[in-house]
Design a protein around this nucleic acid. Structure first.
Length: 563
RNA sequence: UGACCCAUGGUGUAAUGGUAACACUACGGUUUUUGGUACCGUCAUUCUAGGUUCGAGUCCUAGUGGGUCAACCA
């Protein structure tokens, strides 16, 4: 049935997970529709690594016409909170995915999980252990030495049943007893040495309140939730490889739906960190403003930075899926962002570091409205008008007193095109006592107007500009990588913060923007011509417009200069 | 000094026993009213050593290197 439905898809280019999945379909091992899940723990914000897992799980389900559940793995009331549930849901939706049905919670299965535990006890496959955490750890042995049996390992089924019920009824203190699966204390796999599957925690859960005072451990919740939801393929990162033996053991002993766990290598991106604890440290030590600081690797941070969701999806797709350690070049992420924004971002002119330019032969007091195209890559985005007049701002970097041959911009005696306006010729400049250039003087060719140029004058360079008296002052936040080292948390002998990039944020208090800037919307990326892609920050007000730099444009001149 | 996983250009991923492909980066070049975009070109004897085979990046063995595992976290 399923095989028939998928016959057009099977055999198309695929990663190793899709390959395994297709084998399962073709062999008849999986007969229902493909069902994946994304299982975040609601104890923090989602980051770029989660984005990859989301794209993988939802992407595979889409490809094979299946479904993806969103399931909150909320089995530890100590750290979890509804605040995170809402943030996670918003981030997934923003990335462009919709989960099947309503969202699920592992905590919805506490009753069923309890019954699973009873079944295990009844079959002599689980026991209540009164040992202390330290004692249990000692008896585990080491990876090279087998463990030893707990003195409580041979308790009778009846006693175990009674004690476990007592645990549930709150008769014992936190940490005084646990329920352990009886597997194999000599297994080379540490996770099979009678893992703890239930512990006592007299704490209020974000959803079940005080209904329970025992909570299942990951190994007795995750896989079982997969089975309950009939997840066909449970995709997780490599470090869960050792849990798979237990995952399968429990499916067999509990006789539940045989979900299949497949592990892949988690993604590392150069100059980014994804550890929740370390991300939190950045906030606590004041290195960044919050979880959604545009420098953060969080999804909310990337949103505020202006990364389009489509670019993040493309990125995750291009990174691929495999099992080896990897460090992805940030340039790939930025290439995806530029590719997307080049197609979609409206162009605006903003002078970041302004210098006054006077067009001496342009009549004083006069002005005109010039029509400028919004996006050369997309005609349907139309055009706008820009005021032009005698006094304008240009970029300080676009003028040199004694420019080299290859400098295609302005200098004494040189000509350039003002984008969408006229060609101007530099006649001179003025300096103050410190040698600082205060003004550039030019003449313009009235017959060189953009679109109807009959001047015959050639200009190699084109500059962006803004008319002085109609310029809008905006704050521009220029962001750079957060760290100076590609793997800042991989140095055993060095602290992460030693690699903090002190220049990761540079604020320009008053850049000069063309009037159309006031129409920009939060979350809709624009291109500041010749400068980069930017997005309006949600903290903007009518009095103070703030833009965040998403990514610069590629700059081959800068490269040339460096040589 | 155990078990398990991994090893292909600078980076990431492909090649499913038949002579290394794609993307990003870098470097050259063409086009350009964004030094952007687009387009063209250049950059690898697949960790090492044996073996199987007419043929090995792919299969086998050993070695080397890297990673994971001993939370009442997930």
């Amino acid at each position: 049935m399923l095989k028939e439905e998928l016959k057009d898809i099977l055999g198309s280019p695929r990663n190793f997970i899709e390959e395994e999945l297709e084998k399962d379909v073709i062999s008849g091992k999986v007969t229902k529709e493909i069902h994946t899940r994304f299982p975040p723990e609601p104890n923090g914000y989602l980051h770029i690594g989660h984005a990859k897992a989301i794209c993988l799980n939802f992407g595979i389900a889409q490809k094979y016409k299946g479904k993806t559940n969103l399931r909150f793995d909320d089995t530890n009331p100590t750290t979890e909170d509804t605040e995170f549930v809402n943030a996670i849901k918003r981030d997934i939706n923003w990335l462009g995915f919709e989960w099947h049905d309503t969202e699920y919670y592992a905590s919805d299965y506490f009753g069923q999980l309890y019954q699973f535990a009873i079944k295990l006890i009844r079959e002599g496959l689980a026991y209540v252990d009164d040992s202390s955490p330290d004692e249990i750890a000692d008896m585990k042995g080491t990876p090279t030495e087998p463990g030893t049996d707990s003195p409580y390992r041979s308790r009778s089924v009846e006693e175990n049943l009674r004690l476990f019920e007592g645990m549930k009824n709150g008769e014992y203190e936190d940490g005084s007893r646990v329920l352990r699966a009886k597997v194999d204390m000599a297994s080379p796999n540490m996770h099979m040495r009678d893992p703890v599957i239930y512990r006592i925690k007299k704490e209020t859960h974000h959803r079940t309140g005080d209904e329970w005072c025992i909570y299942p451990m990951y190994d007795f919740a995750h896989g079982q939730s997969d089975s309950i939801e009939e997840i066909t393929h449970s995709l997780c990162s490599l470090e869960f490889r050792h849990h798979r033996d237990l995952y399968n053991w429990l499916i067999e002993k509990l006789e539940i739906f045989p979900s299949r766990q497949i592990e892949f290598a988690r993604m590392n991106v150069a100059y980014m960190i994804t550890s929740k604890r370390k991300l939190l440290r950045l906030i606590q030590e004041g290195k960044v403003a919050a979880w959604d600081d545009p420098r953060m690797s969080t999804i909310s941070g990337m949103r505020r930075r202006g990364y389009p969701p489509a670019a993040i999806r493309t990125f995750c797709d291009k990174v691929g899926i495999a099992k080896r350690d990897n460090v992805i070049d940030m340039a790939l992420l930025e290439a995806c962002v530029r590719e997307e924004m080049n197609k979609t971002a409206a162009r605006l002119m903003v002078v970041l570091n302004p210098i006054k330019l006077v067009i001496t032969n342009y009549p004083e007091g006069e002005s005109e409205e010039l029509t400028v195209i919004n996006n050369p890559e997309d005609e349907s985005m139309g055009s706008r008008t820009m005021p032009f007049g005698r006094e304008i701002y240009i970029e300080r970097d676009d003028f040199m007193i004694d420019p080299p041959r290859k400098f295609f911009r302005l200098g004494p005696g040189r000509s350039v095109r003002l984008k969408g306006a006229y060609i101007i010729h530099c006649e001179g400049y003025e300096q103050d006592g410190n040698g600082e250039i205060t003004q550039i003087n030019c003449t313009y060719y009235p017959d060189s107007k953009s679109g109807s140029d009959t001047s015959g004058v050639k200009a190699k360079g084109t500059l962006h500009w803004v008319k002085m008296d109609s310029a809008v002052d905006i704050q521009v936040n220029q962001y750079d990588r957060l760290f100076t080292d590609p793997t800042p948390d991989a140095h055993e002998d060095r602290d992460l913060m030693e690699f903090y990039n002190e220049e990761s944020l540079h604020i320009i208090p008053a850049a000069k923007a063309e009037p159309a800037i006031v129409d920009a919307e939060v979350g809709v990326g624009v291109q500041f011509m010749r400068k980069g892609y930017f997005v309006k920050d949600p903290d903007s007000t009518d009095e103070q417009i703030v833009f965040n730099r998403t990514v610069t444009l590629k700059d081959t001149w800068k490269k040339l200069q460096a040589k």
